[in-house]
Amino acid sequence: MTDQTPVLSFRGINTHYGAVHILKDVDIDIYAGEMVSLLGGNASGKTTTLKTILGYVQPTTGEVLLDGVSVNDWSTADRVAHGVSMVPENRRLFKRMTVRENLEIGAYLRSGEDLSTDFDRVFDLFPRVKERLGQKAGTLSGGEQQMVAMGRALMARPKVLLMDEPSMGLAPVLVAQNFEIIERINKAGTTVFVVEQNANMALSIADRGYVLQTGRIVLADTAQALLQNPQMREAYLGEV
């Protein structure tokens, strides 16, 4: 794997909100077809990492690379066009639009193309969504919203799918199903980068993981190794 160019990488990224230093010398490499998790507690800088990838936040130093090309001065729209899609924290559907409109707008950059195969793919992963096409997204249950949010991101046919805390606010049984689906998406060829606090769950399906603590990467290893790591077990996996 190491001889490939990573599809997504951070090189010495530092970010600030005003004077507050958030990400500190962060290096991340994600290779095609991988499933990588970024673990960290509250306010450790996980969302900021994703925002930096999409260009909402500009790093003060360091480079974001997509397929080896620095995209620091690319707009968000250009990065999305390059194949990066995000399922935002708390899903953030367009609540006033119908489920169908939410999915359609997910494929915004391919407007005018035939979307039927994309719809089929989403229905295949989430049969429930098909029943709800005409319903307003704001009236869906939390679990359904998560499905539509993932469907919306998939409609763009992303090469890399970013997910910000997909388990947040969902019942445990739904979380498990969610991760099963993420695994299926990954197996079907999409590179997935999942940000999570729920380390156990995330590591159970990931290939590799990074651990973020107050903006600094403190551990980086294969998922297997992280699950065994005593330091990790103590701090994040809820064991003493």
């Binding site: 999409l54 968000t76 935002p88 639009m97 707008i105």
Partner: peptide, 25 residues
């Protein structure tokens, strides 16, 4: 048209509209 859909999305959630590839500027 396409721009009409982009406006509708932007009206509702500007950040997410960006994340979908809409150039809100």
């Amino acid at each position: 048209s396409r721009i009409g859909r982009a406006w509708a999305a932007m009206r509702e959630d500007e950040d997410v509209a960006e994340a979908i590839g809409i150039s809100t500027v």
